[in-house]
Amino acid sequence: MGLLRFGLPAALVAVGLVTAPYIQRFNPANRPVDAWALALIVVAGAATAFRARWPLPTLVVVVLSTTTYLTVGYPYGPIMFSVAVAVFEVARRRSLPTASLWCGGALAVLLVHLLTNSAALDGYLGLAPGSAWVAIPFTLGVARRLVVEAGTRERLEAERRLVDAERLRLAQEVHDVVGHGLAAIQMQADIALHLQRTKPDQAAVALEAISRASADALAELRTTLAEISPDAPDRAPTPGLAHLDALVARVEAAGLTVGVVRRGTPSPVPSAVDVAAYRVLQEALTNVVKHSAHPKASVVVEHGPASLTLVVSNQNLTGAPPSEGIGITGMRRRVEHLGGTLTAAQHDRTFEVRAILPLTPSS
C-alpha cells in the first residue's frame, strides 16, 4: 500500500516533467512550458499522495492546479492524469450524491480554460477532452465503490449467518439437555409427591432420583456451554452412543420402561454423527416421558455399512399424532444437516421417530 500511495504520485510527476517540454512541439500556439508549468505539474501530481486520506481536498488542489495550468495557455498533457486519479478516489470513497456534486463542480472549474486558452478546441469539441477526464474515472470509481460495498455486505451477511447458526446450534443443545433433565425431574417429583401421601418411607428413593437427574443434567449442560470456551478446564467428553445405556438408565429412573435392540456390527462413526444420534435418542425418549400416557418405549439402533438407523417408538393411546414442536424440529434439523432423513409419524396406535444418518456426513 505504501508503494502504491507514493509510487503513483511520483510516476505522475516524473511523466509530467519529462513529457511536458516535448508536448509543446505538437502545438506551437500554446504557451511555452516554463518553470511555472513544471511547478503546477509537480503540485498536481504530488497532491494525489493524499487522495486516500483526504480525497476532497486532494481533488480541489489538483483541479485548481490543472485549471491554472490550462487557463494560462500551457498545452494539454499528462497533468490530466492527476485529475483522473483525484476524481476516481472521490467517486470511490464518497457517496454517489457527494461524489457527483464535487466532481461536477470540478468539471465546471476545469472547463474554464475554454474561455481563456486560445489554443483550446473550438465549440463543443472543446468540452470533450475535459469531460472525458472527469466522466470516465468518475464512472470507474463509482463502479469500484459498488463492488467493494457489495463484497462487504456479502461478508457481513455470511458472518451473520454463521453467528445465527452457532446460536441455533447452542440453543438446540441447551434445549435437549435441559428438556431431558427437567422431564425426568418432573416425573420423579410427581412420584415423590404421590409416595409422600401413600408411602412416606419410600419418597426418599424418588428424591434421590431427582438429585441424580439434576446432577446429570447440570454436568451435561456444563459440557455444552464449555464448547463456547474450548479451553475450559472442566470440559467433559461429548456425549455419544457409548452413553446410551446411561441415558436409558436415567429415563427408566424417571418411570419409563425402555427396550433397546442393537442390530448390525457396531463400528466407529464420525463424531458429528455420534453426537447427533445421541441427541435424537435423548430427545425422542424425553418426548415419551413428557407426552406419552403409556410409560414404555422401544429403541432400535441399527449399524449398516453406509448409514446408522435409529428408531424410537411407543404406544400412543390417544391415536392422534402429536404436533411437531421444537423438539422434533430440532431433531430433524440435526439429521438433515448431516445429509440424513428423519420422520416422526403415527402408525396405527404407535408413534415412531425414525432417523437415518449417513456415516459420511455431507456437512
Rank of each mutant, 00 (worst) to 15 (best):
S65Y: 11
T66P: 14
T68L: 15
Y69M: 08
T71G: 04
P75V: 00
Y76S: 11
Y76G: 09
G77L: 10
P78D: 01
M80R: 13
M80W: 14
F81P: 13
S82R: 03
S82A: 13
V83L: 11
A84K: 02
A84E: 10
V85P: 00
V85T: 02
A86K: 11
A86G: 08
F88W: 13
F88H: 00
V90G: 01
V90A: 03
A91D: 08
A91G: 15
R92M: 09
R92C: 07
R93M: 04
R93H: 02
R94Y: 14
S95P: 07
L96S: 12
P97R: 04
P97H: 03
T98H: 15
T98Y: 15
T98Q: 15
S100D: 09
L101E: 05
W102Y: 09
W102V: 11
C103A: 14
C103V: 14
G104M: 06
G105F: 06
A106W: 11
A106I: 02
V109R: 12
V109Y: 12
V109S: 11
L110Y: 04
L110S: 01
L110F: 09
L111I: 13
V112Y: 14
H113R: 10
L114H: 04
L115E: 06
N117H: 05
A119T: 02
A120W: 02
G123F: 07
G123M: 08
Y124Q: 00
Y124S: 00
L125D: 06
G126P: 10
L127S: 06
P129Y: 05
P129W: 01
P129I: 07
P129G: 07
G130C: 04
G130I: 06
S131L: 14
A132R: 08
V134R: 02
A135I: 10
I136Q: 05
I136N: 03
T139I: 11
L140P: 12
R145I: 05
L146W: 12
L146Y: 08
V148L: 03
V148D: 03
E149C: 08
A150M: 03
G151L: 09
T152H: 13
R153E: 04
E154P: 02
E154Y: 13
E154S: 07
L156W: 13
L156F: 15
E159H: 14
E159D: 14
E159K: 12
R160L: 10
R161N: 01
R161Y: 08
L162G: 13
V163R: 14
D164V: 15
D164Q: 15
D164I: 15
L168Y: 03
L168W: 01
R169L: 09
R169G: 02
R169E: 01
L170R: 00
A171Q: 01
Q172K: 08
V174W: 05
V174M: 03
H175P: 01
D176L: 10
V177Q: 05
V177I: 01
G179D: 06
G179H: 01
H180C: 06
G181E: 04
G181S: 00
L182S: 00
L182N: 06
L182G: 03
L182R: 02
A183P: 06
A184T: 06
I185A: 13
Q186H: 11
Q186L: 12
Q188D: 05
A189R: 00
A189W: 13
I191K: 10
I191A: 11
A192D: 06
L193W: 01
H194N: 06
H194D: 08
H194V: 12
L195D: 03
L195M: 08
Q196D: 12
R197H: 10
R197T: 10
